[in-house]
Design a protein around this nucleic acid. Sequence first.
RNA 1: GGUGACGUGACCGAGUGGCUAGGUAGAGGUCUGCAAAACCUCCUACAGCGGUUCGAAUCCGCUCGUCACCUCCA
Length: 513
Amino acid sequence: MSLTLYNTLTRKKEEFQPLHAPQVGVYLCGPTVYSEAHLGNARGPVVFDVLTRYLRHLQYQVRYVRNITDVGHLESDADTGEDKMEKAARAARIEPMQVAQHFTNRYRQHMLGLGCLPPDIEPQASGHIIEQIQVIEEIINNGLAYEVNGSVYFDVPKYNEEGKRYGKLSNRSIEDQLAGTRAGLEGQSEKRSPLDFALWKKASPEHIMRWPSPWGEGFPGWHLECSAMSRKYLGDLSDIHGGGLDLMFPHHECEIAQSQGSHSHTDEARVWMHNNMITVNGTKMSKSLGNFVLLGDMFKGPTGPLAFGYSPMVVRFFLLQAHYRSPVDVSDDALQAARKGYRKLMNGLRLLDRLTADSLSSDVIRDRTVAPLAEGKQPDTAAGDAELRKLVADVFVGLNDDLNTARAIASLFNLLRKFNTLAATTAAMATVSSAALTEAVDAYRAVVSDILGLQDEPRANAEELLKLTLEFYTEAKAEKAYDKVDQIRGALKSQGIVIKDTKAGVEWAYSEE
RNA sequence: GGUGACGUGACCGAGUGGCUAGGUAGAGGUCUGCAAAACCUCCUACAGCGGUUCGAAUCCGCUCGUCACCUCCA
């Protein structure tokens, strides 16, 4: 049983084999930090978080790179195209890097909330201009790029003449692409072919973000950073490269061309993975359509199509309940169902502690020694153990099948039902061995917490609970039930809280000890 | 126009030639001071029409419908 992943490049599920086991290099195209992240921006990070968590569970040494795009994404293909970063900065009348930093901070905060572990390396495009210039020079030296008026373009037709195939990832032929080219392509006069894409763009006088280069002051093209940074941190060829389906073309296609055209001469990554989109009423959530749900708003709610707020963990669970290559539609109904399912799974997590608790074990042991010993036999747990192990195995069948978290979660619920049945009676408990039970309990915990990254969210309000306790305290005192009084006082004291009987009534404070 | 997906029960969402998906909602039951939880049973399915097959929700064809990419987008 081993992990298989769907590779967009081959359009097949492939058994995952690291290039340099036990090391595994994973790259995820990160956010452009010029605005607040929306729900759609969260899917890739969540999926790749589960992927890297699972790879680590499989004992691989993972280097997970997720970049921050803080420069270089043009507003349009036109020569006058303004950088999105700059546009936002201009609107807010602040330093562009301040905008980038602000939204980078927000993004990290949201990702942590969603249970995504920080990447091992989080490189910023603006910090890798030199590396990007170097890649351009390599491509020029290989004769696959040309300079016009301080801008540099990748020569797609030439690239194809050399036996490469621009379009191999998205399965498009050059002819189709040319045929599909739209009419509105003025502003492309500098390009030799409409298929060519910018590696470096000359900065117009009003452009704030600019860097010196062999071709004058300018800024890197929008596909270049990932190629340059992937190579720097993961080598010429990494194991896995991912992003949203909408990045497949042209972004990832261009990345492959750039890597093939540079000294790397590789597809940049062996496995290319693409997560599907999140839709609202069946239509893709996107900035341009304005139908997006900002993560910050979603956690608080209501916002846009949602009448309620949903906690980060509920959102994470919601996303994982679908397979990453399927589209997911957001709605209150779906999220509310997900919330209940999530809580059920979390209650299961708490049940595990009881299942392995000493008190329960001793009961079980007593049951086993009383009943079966009358017949002079050990209890037969073979069937129960086998069932338990099958339930656990099913969970991993799901994970191994192209990271099918939907199947894995379904199997977890089946396992949970078994746990609930076992916990109900000591007789049921006696049908499984403690070894098999411990195994299953550990597996449940590992998958839910470590691999799926689902944590319990405390929902109880401590202050309210404390208030309630003080009411019982007051009642006990009125009844002169002093052992009860002392018991409550002692319990709270062990939590670092002292009760103060004042003339005005009962109050509490944190212990100063 | 080109490329690629998809259409599963009240809602969400897996699966894929014969074997229970799962969650939520609904009905009944066990348990229960009440309730909840838990467990058991049940209900509503594979867009339509043909075809292949011993057998199709699963493969093929057609029809209808929906979506994505081809332009910045996760």
